[in-house]
Simulated assay, not measured.
Amino acid sequence: MTAAVGRVTLVGGGPGDPDLLTLAAVRALGEADVVLYDRLAPYRVLPELAPQAEHIDVGKRPGHHPIGQSGIEQLIVEHARRGAHVVRLKGGDPYVFGRGSEEVLACHAAGIPVRVVPGVTSAVSVPAAAGIPLTHRGTSRLFTVVSGHAPLEEHELEHLAGLGGTIVVLMGVGTLPSLTAGLRRAGCDPDTPVAAVERGWTDRQRTTVSTLGGIMEECFRVGVSSPAVLVIGEVVRLAHDRDASIEELLARSAELTARG
């Protein structure tokens, strides 16, 4: 007798703080037989939230992909075909640069039922952790979310600069030099404020604030590293990091510059 086909739930785990998991995410984890998780997902709570499930680390790290995307999709399908409820736990939201749509299509192709549980995207939550609103009356009435995984083309930079508002860049530390230079070529003011928020919603969160013309030097000076979210725009002037105001953040940058 053939075992019944299982099901798949793609769960957005938010920026990493378990408190930002949705109720639907917690319920899905509690019903899971197998959980495939990423390195930026809140996987440390899996023993508590999915105690009966098998936990499989499929996380990719910069320059190190032990299991490629096609391999992850194959694992999802294989476990579901054996009758398991497979939860694919991803950081942020599955549909915001999370390759969730690829995993949904793989399930559809295999005839496996799949559901997506949205997550709190780091594009919004990490700036919020640093006290940066993406919109503010009279300052910014739109924001654009960009992947910094690969350098933007010249026409993309021109469109981005022309939109105005706030620019949020995910996975952008590695391509920061080309991004800042490209936006300046496209007409952005070099004095536009920029914030780099590292490890948002963790006890090691840090915000580095400068300008479009100076952020590269500041990031190099203080050693900004991934994961980090970049925010470009006038809303950065409203920032505060925990108990530090924007004035204090800028003063820190000025002090470090003077030391250099």
Results as ranks from 00 to 15, higher is better:
Gly6Val: 03
Arg7Trp: 10
Val11His: 10
Gly12Met: 02
Gly13His: 14
Gly14Met: 04
Gly14Val: 04
Gly16Tyr: 11
Asp19Ala: 14
Asp19Ser: 14
Leu20Cys: 06
Ala25Ser: 05
Val26Ser: 09
Arg27Tyr: 14
Leu29Arg: 09
Asp33Ser: 13
Val34His: 05
Leu36Phe: 06
Arg39Asn: 07
Arg39Val: 11
Leu40Val: 10
Tyr43His: 15
Arg44Asn: 04
Ala53Thr: 02
Glu54Arg: 15
His55Lys: 09
Ile56Lys: 06
Val58His: 07
Val58Ile: 14
Gly59Leu: 01
Lys60Pro: 04
Pro62Thr: 05
His64Leu: 11
Pro66Val: 05
Pro66Gly: 00
Val77Gly: 01
Val77Lys: 01
Ala80Met: 00
Arg82Ala: 08
Ala84Cys: 12
His85Pro: 04
Gly91Met: 04
Gly92Met: 00
Gly92Thr: 01
Val96Met: 05
Gly98Trp: 14
Gly98Leu: 13
Glu102Phe: 11
Glu103Tyr: 06
Val104Gln: 12
Ala106Val: 04
His108Thr: 10
Ala109Val: 09
Gly111Val: 00
Val116Gln: 10
Pro118Gly: 07
Val120Trp: 06
Val124Thr: 13
Val126Lys: 12
Pro127Asn: 08
Gly131Trp: 12
Leu134Phe: 01
Leu134Tyr: 00
Thr135Leu: 00
His136Arg: 13
Ser140Ala: 15
Leu142Ser: 15
Phe143Asp: 00
Val146Met: 00
Ser147Met: 01
Ser147Thr: 07
His149Gly: 05
Ala150Ser: 12
Pro151Thr: 10
Glu156Thr: 02
Glu156Ile: 02
Leu157Asp: 03
Gly162Cys: 00
Gly162Ser: 03
Leu163Val: 14
Gly164Cys: 03
Gly164Ile: 08
Ile167Lys: 08
Ile167Leu: 05
Val169Pro: 04
Gly172Arg: 12
Val173Ala: 06
Val173Ile: 15
Thr175His: 09
Leu176Gln: 07
Leu176Asn: 06
Pro177Ile: 06
Ser178Ile: 09
Thr180Tyr: 13
Thr180Trp: 14
Leu183Met: 06
Ala186Trp: 07
Asp191Trp: 11
Asp191Leu: 10
Thr192Lys: 13
Pro193Asn: 09
Val194Ser: 00
Arg199Ser: 09
Gly200Lys: 03
Arg206Thr: 11
Leu212Ser: 02
Gly213Asp: 04
Gly213Glu: 04
Gly214His: 14
Gly214Gln: 14
Glu217Arg: 15
Glu218Lys: 11
Arg221Ser: 08
Val224Gly: 01
Val224Met: 02
Val224Thr: 05
Ser226Leu: 11
Ala228Gln: 12
Val231Pro: 01
Glu234Lys: 15
Val235Phe: 02
Arg237Pro: 01
Ala239Arg: 10
Asp243Tyr: 14
Ser245Ile: 08
Ser245Cys: 04
Ile246Ala: 11
Ile246Gly: 09
Glu248Met: 04
Leu249His: 11
Ala251Tyr: 12
Glu255Asp: 11
Thr257Asn: 11
Arg259Glu: 14
Gly260Thr: 13
Gly260Glu: 13
